[in-house]
Amino acid sequence: MAPFELVAPATPDEAIAELGALGASDAVPLAGGTDLLFDLDDGRLAPRRVVSLRRLPWQTLDWNGPILTVGSTLPLRRLETDPEVRTRLPGLYTAVRAVGSVALRHQATLGGNLGRSAPASDLVPMLLALDAEIDLVGPQGARTVPVDQFVIGSRRTALRPAELIRSVRFPEPRPSAYLWQRVRPFRDISQMAVAVAYSPARARWRVAVAGFPPRPLLVPEVEDALGPVLPPARSDLDRGAHVLSTRAPIVGDKRASEAYRRQIVRPLLERAVRRASGEKAGS
């Protein structure tokens, strides 16, 4: 690991200034470190300055009517233990619990998961299905980007130099579910994952898949097929599963073949939609 200096500014403005004073590859933000430390160890990143976000006032969780705003540096464990998250955004609760272990989640953050933007992230697909919006703040001020536009590819996001993720906003409670296929059910990387949510406001299902490159994706054709109601008609669910399995841009990589993924995604979608509709999986 190349030597670096570690700074821990107390305000967002100072953090942005610390980052902006050096080039993007010379200064990087640190949240939980559960991804960043690996990139520092193997030399993928060799910054001169690491800017810890731990003192920023962003370890927050606020419900404002139907809207949930989660500060980017809130440890994931605190998101999972909020009783309203569990009941109002059940898919988010499940997806958070799919990440590593409890101790890892006391360190890891939503901001870090988005910053890493891994193709097999367990949180990005759920954020897509929930139409999360990402609040950013940087040298040019604040802006908000839908998660679908924020995530570009592995380690590639819409972040501009010295810009930080401040918070993530969820516009409404949604019946939702998250299911994944892994070699081992917990503490492993998902080979294939499906996030579904039903938007009452838009009378529409949202369906995202993840686990393969280049990034987690929404699949609007499947959403169309599922129709406007909760639960969907049996024939619509069949059609949605067929469309997802045959037409989604699923590819193979070292962790699973394309054929395997196309096969496994069908029952994952069916079970996820049933679970979001309040039925037990497999019923």
Binding site: L6, A8, L30, G32, G33, T34, L37, S52, R54, P75, R77, S101, V102, A103, L104, H106, Q107
Partner: peptide, 19 residues
């Protein structure tokens, strides 16, 4: 490597001491 930080379990192998 689990220790408690401010009462909560964390992984000390993934924590910069100075952080």
């Amino acid at each position: 490597c689990t220790v408690l930080r401010d009462g909560h379990a964390v992984l000390s192998c993934l924590l910069l001491a100075r952080d």
